[in-house]
Amino acid sequence: MTWLHVAKKDFHDAGRSRLLWVLTALLVLLVAGVAAIPYVLAAATNDPTPTFESGLTFLFSPIGFLIPIIGLAVGYRSIVGERESGSIRFLLGLPNSREDVLLGKVVGRTGVVTVPIVIGFAVGGVVIAALYQGFDGLDYLGLLLFTVVMGLVYVAIAVGISASVSTRGKALGLVITVYAVVDWFWTFIPMSLYWILERSFPGFEDLPAWYLLLERLSPGQALSAISLTLIDTFGAGDVDLTAAGRVAGDVPFYLETWFAWVIVLGWIVVPLAVGYLRFRSALLN
């Protein structure tokens, strides 16, 4: 198994790109900057200093917006770029299997995403600890871990796509399509079905289990569900965001949080499996 060498090489290579530094700057700005907004707003209106929880919650949605884009951007050229440049002939002329290449790329690119996340969170942590009451290290680490998992999911999707196609243009087109479907249009799927069946629009509560399952099958929703387990704060609000509070009747197993981990895992494994099957039979000439 030489995937570790591939990952290391890939991390060094991609890590020397300007992309990594742009990402780092972006994440430092994001974590430190966005987290400061509730504090600044509170100070401007002479409200009492907001709690750590509100800073963290405020941070959550820009992360959910930015990390998928970063993960996809970092991953989509990983394999097809080497096919176009011809460096894949080194990779596969050396004793690396195509599995090694795929696995090494996912690990290497996840590393590329993780470094700016960690730096961003380290700098942001100082800012947040200074501005807010009751800094909770464990919760903060939970959010960091969650962000890395989210990065991994989108890197895996992008690497799977990158392994599946023969040109960078196709990879870019597919990545954009998948992003639009998965992160933007997905909610319309259960909603449309609900409308067809019920002739009304779904509310927030008392929903059929199938509706919540369909909703949760998107990586974004599945990740939101697991964030509740990683960050205690998020589960402590008045409104029960979990399926338990929204489903009509008993909570089926597939709406329990552990199953959200299965879905998240699926979003890592399935794109890579599809990519592998296509890459395995790809002609490199």
């Binding site: 290579d13 080497e82 440049s85 011809g86 460096s87 002939r89 080194f90 002329g93 050396l94």
Partner: peptide
């Protein structure tokens, strides 16, 4: 292996 039409990193 010294491949043909390779590209460097």
């Amino acid at each position: 292996v010294l491949p043909e039409d390779f590209g460097v990193y």
